[in-house]
Simulated assay, not measured.
Amino acid sequence: MSARIQEPRSGGEPRRGETLIQQRNRKIILCAALDEFSAHGFHGASIANIARAAGLSKANLLYYFSRKEELYRALLTSLIDTWGVPLTSLDPDGDPREELLSYVRRKLQQTRTMPRESRLLANEILQGGPHLEGETLESLRRIVQSKTDLIRSWSAAGRIPHVDAPHLLISIWALTQNYADYDSQIRRLLGEEADISDTPQTFLETLYGSLLAS
């Protein structure tokens, strides 16, 4: 079982007084839930399947997370927090073009190392984002707004060509996350031997490098 998931900040953290075994069980449940939710979405996922994959009884799982929604929100909260990390790394004092190209690289690396998390978010968005709410989402919105304003300031100062800042970010999200969300489709169309590790980075650096060339 993979354990690539980041520690959730909401719902997934160890409770006060929990034993080491209980803390371990919580992490195992979250890993199993990530596999299940990323593959089937919220409605298609089964608590019974998650418990089975975690090697626990359903009753034991419900001791840690009383409802499927609580478990799902713990994963989603952790994912949204993690998803915003590469964006916060944009340095206002750095070279704008290199900062944005570095952001593309970080997003692509995140997609490579966290494909299940990317698919989980994609499934949530396709359902209209009913569980995307609260302070976590507001925090992410503030980060996006701050970095959108930063890109606009770079453009206004002539440090990069004029670009539509929100849609520049949207295009980066779409192009990088596509490699995780549609991995099966890409491999079916291009063949199982298709290089979707290094080639995308070279292509995207060329694409955005040309777009941002002053």
Rank of each mutant, 00 (worst) to 15 (best):
I151R: 02
G12F: 01
L79M: 07
L169F: 06
M114E: 06
K68L: 02
K27Y: 08
Y63N: 13
Q22N: 14
N25T: 08
S78D: 06
K107R: 15
A48R: 13
L87W: 04
S214K: 14
P8Q: 02
L34N: 01
P166S: 05
K147W: 00
K58W: 09
T148A: 03
A48N: 11
A3L: 15
R159H: 06
T82F: 14
R152C: 08
L61F: 04
K68V: 05
V85N: 10
P130M: 04
V144N: 07
Q185F: 13
R119P: 03
F65D: 03
T199D: 07
Y103G: 03
M114R: 10
W173A: 13
G94S: 05
R15F: 08
N49H: 10
S146L: 09
H131M: 06
D183A: 11
S78Q: 04
A45T: 05
R67S: 14
L62F: 10
R73T: 11
D81C: 03
D91L: 05
S38G: 03
P161A: 08
S139E: 15
V85Q: 15
Q6S: 12
Q145A: 15
S66F: 03
L90A: 02
H131V: 06
L71A: 07
L76S: 05
F37V: 01
P166K: 04
Q145R: 14
L34R: 00
R16H: 01
W173K: 12
I186V: 11
P8H: 05
L175A: 07
Q22H: 15
Y103D: 00
S78A: 10
T148N: 01
K147S: 04
I21C: 14
V144F: 08
S10F: 12
I125K: 08
I80W: 01
S210P: 02
R9E: 14
L20Q: 15
N49A: 10
K107F: 07
A194G: 01
L140D: 02
L120K: 00
S155P: 00
N123R: 10
T176I: 04
L108W: 00
S38C: 09
Y64N: 02
H43Q: 15
D195P: 01
V144I: 13
S171Y: 02
Q201W: 11
L71M: 04
T111L: 03
E18K: 05
R141I: 13
E133F: 08
A54K: 00
P14S: 08
T88E: 14
P96N: 10
N178T: 14
S89Y: 11
D93P: 03
T111Y: 00
S214C: 14
V104N: 01
S146D: 08
R159M: 09
R52E: 15
E70H: 10
